[in-house]
Nucleic acid binder design. Structure first.
Lengths: 232, 232
DNA sequence: TCAACGTATTGTTATTTATCAGTTTTGTTT
DNA sequence: AAACAAAACTGATAAATAACAATACGTTGA
């Protein structure tokens, strides 16, 4: 049977199950099965919308999703990219009744949504679960924060190098990959103008640091890219 | 007796006690008294250092402190400012064995440090405590993240307006206050150059938006400042 | 009190980035 | 296949920011 299917919706048998739930006992896993929904989102479809009430914890199984928000000037800003096995919007559950950003599929996605009150029940019933959740949340926000802080101090060339490196190392774990996002989305992600994204990508290609063929990007000289990433 | 003293170190009687601990029972509060230390930090003194092991949860009672880190280019970057009643470094406790930033007093500070293992014990013993902690952590990181994201999209004038407004509204709750940080620190906080901080402050003064007398700053036209903060 | 140092300030210039305008390419719909 | 729209790209120019240089100011310590 296909690894990509949710096996009869039984969480205990799920190959995607988040490490957070490794702590649960059999009974709790059965409960999880009941209290979660399994969903699909087509590319560009919203998984969650800024301002909408939080229904539960969203666990991304397959596909990439972007976290975005509309800033005060009305410009779309991408906060980060969620990858398979990520709990997205974990912070929102506890800090607010509503999502404070959008979660939008940038590839076809599969995700589970674990009911809000069930999560709360688990916290009460299982202090280990609470602890694991605390760790997870802290790590995720530390990581996000670190990424944003790193981006802030770079100039454009460094930012583009940063996300190319990020996609290659963190997301695809390969020097060659299909760029999942448009130039405009890169611009929104690192807070710059589309024209400059294009220009700098062309520059990297001209300098033989990367190779571009359609949507495919290959990082030819990772060391050079790392240098630019570090030194601007 | 002075509100600023730690009354015989008995947490149950402490007027500064964090809302997090409102959930504890008397016995747990007694335990808290034993498992915390009360400390002072002079201006510019480090309360915690990047890379050092996390000893516990730091609760700021009196004074302001800055959270800083050294970025990859070796430049000091200020992540945020902690105000009285803040738990600083709450994230670090759960995400890492070491602090990933410095906590440095920008005024004379008083703070309590609650032992790491005691916090863990509390989480195990009291699921309400765990829940409150989850909420607190989420709110803090949401807030921080929001602030950084807001800063990213502004240009220099907007960023300076942003922190002036922040100091006035969030920290001093007054139109007139003594600037607690130097021009260089403002620059580090909003990621710009000292010269530009100076220039823009002078510009604001020239335009009669603010008044500067030594370290004292008065916001004369809050509406104009807000406009600049929003529209760059 | 002077020397030394860090901070604040101002002016000038170089560099970086945004904006505008237009063309080409690519993908989608009919 | 044609028509259209969105995305990718390129060049020219304007605006914003950084970098450099020099001076003033204030504090600290000898």
């Amino acid at each position: 049977m296909n690894e990509n299917t949710c096996m009869g919706s039984v969480c205990a048998e799920c190959s995607f199950r988040s490490s957070i739930f490794s702590i649960l006992n059999d009974e709790q896993l059965d409960q999880l099965t009941i209290n979660k929904t399994f969903n699909f989102a087509k590319k560009n479809e919203a998984i969650a919308k800024q301002g909408n009430p939080v229904k539960g914890a969203i666990f991304l199984r397959v596909g990439l999703a972007k976290l975005t928000r509309v800033n005060s000037v009305g410009r779309e800003q991408i906060i980060g990219i969620a990858t398979p096995n990520d709990f997205v919007g974990l912070l929102s559950i506890f800090s607010s009744k509503n999502y404070n950003y959008n979660i939008i599929a940038i590839e076809d996605c599969q995700y589970c949504c674990v009911d809000y009150t069930f999560v709360m029940d688990l916290i009460n019933a299982n202090s280990n679960f609470a602890m694991t959740l605390l760790e997870k949340i802290s790590q995720v926000s530390d990581l996000m924060m670190g990424t944003r802080l790193n981006l802030e101090m770079r100039q454009l060339r460094g930012r583009v190098a940063f996300i190319l490196s990020y996609l290659s190392k963190e997301i695809y774990k390969s020097a060659k990959f299909n760029l999942p996002i448009s130039r405009r989305e890169i611009a929104e992600l690192v807070d710059m103008r589309v024209e400059n994204v294009v220009r700098i990508l062309s520059e990297f290609r001209r300098d033989n640091i990367i190779r571009i063929e359609g949507a495919s990007i290959e990082i030819v000289e990772p060391e050079k890219l790392e240098w630019i990433k570090m030194h601007g």
